[in-house]
Nucleic acid binder design. Sequence first.
DNA 1: GGAATCATGTGAT
DNA 2: ATCACATGATTCC
Length: 290
Amino acid sequence: MNITTSVPTDITPHGSDYETVSRVVEILTEDYRDQPSLDAIARQLGQSPTQLQKTFTRWAGLSPKAFLQAVTLDHAKRLLGREGMPLLETSYELGLSGPGRLHDLFVTHEAMSPGEWKARGAGLTIRYGFHPSPFGVALVMATDRGLAGLAFNDAGQEKASFEDMAGRWPNALFVEDSATTAGYAARIFNSDRWRPDEPLRVVLIGSDFQIRVWQALLKIPMGKAVTYSDVACDIGQPTASRAVGAAVGRNPISFVVPCHRALGKGGTLTGYHWGLTRKRAMLGWEAGKA
DNA sequence: GGAATCATGTGAT
DNA sequence: ATCACATGATTCC
């Protein structure tokens, strides 16, 4: 496998927007208790408050102030919707059959057979490409049956994220084909194009248990969150919350399978394979879309 | 309260 | 068999 194919230099348009924004996210997240002002943040980054405000808002669809509010523990708890409804059941009804706008990306999924999983990708051709996204550089991987993988990295780390993903299906054939993957990228990061009449096709490649966990995640509507133990109950193994955590972490199609909506029990943000900052960024971005 | 500790299911090696 | 986990509950100070 060879990924010397260079990423276009303009892959992060407007300079290092993501860098700036992720710094802001970090500051906001570390110090949300003392509610840093826009001025204070801008000073730390050596930018003018207005410039910073503009950059951030264009990226997130919401002001730094609103974002700050969104990453607050309070908000996370609200997302968990402890108002007495079994979230996963409810969203299943609304998400798959109702006309409601509670569900987000329309996804049809297809699981690989156990045999195909055991083959670790043998005989499979996977096309991939790097594309800009609101969360840094996105690595998109697809088979002819649909989207198979989605990873994120900071500019310059393309090789690492490719190897992370490719290692999951060591026997597959990887072909650089950003012309094909560009279409997926455009669909995924543009919520205007999440349409029920043209669902996104996704292939879940994983063990039986993992696939059950990922399917449960797909039922979480945008702007909601669940705990790892919620998911464990949903798949009928209430004591397996720890195992759920591990399976969530191995989700190959992050963001599309909303692993970022799985939180710790009290609403605390726990780990994320591609970096906690990115998890916060995704939650904030969604808060802006909701 | 908060840190240390343990019980725990699954998958990888 | 054994180990590592994106957890959660319990038990100490």
